[in-house]
Simulated assay, not measured.
Amino acid sequence: MNLHILIVFSILVASSYANTIEFDYCVADPALPHGPTGYACKDPAKATSDDFAYSGLRTPGNTSNIFKFGASLGLVAQFPALNGLGISIVRGDMDVGGAVPLHTHRVSELIVIVEGTIIAGFIDTNNTAFYKTLEKGDLFVIPPTLEHFQVNVGKIPSVLYASFSSPNPGVQIISNSLFQSDLPTEIIQKITLLDPAQIKKLKRVFGGTN
């Protein structure tokens, strides 16, 4: 019995140290190979103050698209100093009437509204919808992996910032997955119950085939 307790305790202790960083920082070097655990580190002796600053969110996202939504990314690929730190941020811009379509991330998300009025929401695995009208300064949290969305319901363009608990949270937009892919219309009809004519129309809009 005591041995079992010791083994369990050892596993728990090991797990608690799993996310402890060994070095002060690990600025990513995109030129080196990388994998599921992240990018390889740049030589710390070559790090500069510029590595830890990023101005990419000054530029609004491009909203010239069907959803009237654009994003400026502050992920590890754009901001290498985030490598290994478990954080990232994105700026989202929506024109009046714009929307962020249903999508998912691998990790949790926290959004703060900077300008405008939006409805933000998600749908849990019991198919319960949680959504709220948000104003400037409001926050909304989205649990990991759940489908979620934002809609600009105000009279001015909206701006929000979304922070993530990963330097590379990933994103999968449902409509793009279905209608920008080469998944055959017949299969999409079976799994969505949409009319084939509507599916083909959406494939033309999103650039999908089959």
Rank of each mutant, 00 (worst) to 15 (best):
T185V: 13
D195I: 07
S166A: 10
D24T: 14
F79E: 02
Q150N: 14
V171S: 11
S108L: 03
P196G: 03
G170H: 05
V8I: 13
G70P: 04
F9N: 14
M1I: 12
A77D: 13
S108M: 11
D124V: 01
E115W: 14
L194I: 12
N152S: 09
E135P: 14
R204T: 13
I118N: 06
G38Q: 06
N83H: 13
G74Y: 14
N168F: 06
D93L: 05
T48S: 01
A47N: 14
D95H: 02
S55N: 04
E186H: 06
D43K: 08
Y131R: 13
A197G: 14
L193D: 05
P143Y: 06
S16L: 11
S72Q: 01
L73S: 11
S166Y: 01
D124T: 04
S166T: 01
F23H: 15
A120R: 13
T59D: 05
G61M: 08
L6Q: 11
L32W: 01
G137A: 04
G137E: 08
P169S: 00
A120H: 02
L183Y: 04
G208D: 02
S158M: 01
S64F: 02
T125I: 13
P36N: 09
L82Q: 02
I89G: 12
P60Q: 02
T125S: 08
P196Q: 03
A77L: 15
P44H: 00
S166R: 00
E135R: 08
S166L: 01
L146D: 10
P144H: 15
P30K: 03
L32N: 12
P101W: 07
I174R: 13
S10V: 10
Q78N: 15
I174K: 12
M94L: 12
L75F: 10
S108E: 10
H34C: 02
T48E: 00
S175P: 00
T145P: 00
F206G: 00
T63E: 08
D195C: 01
P143V: 07
L183K: 00
G84A: 03
P167T: 03
F67A: 10
F130N: 12
A129I: 11
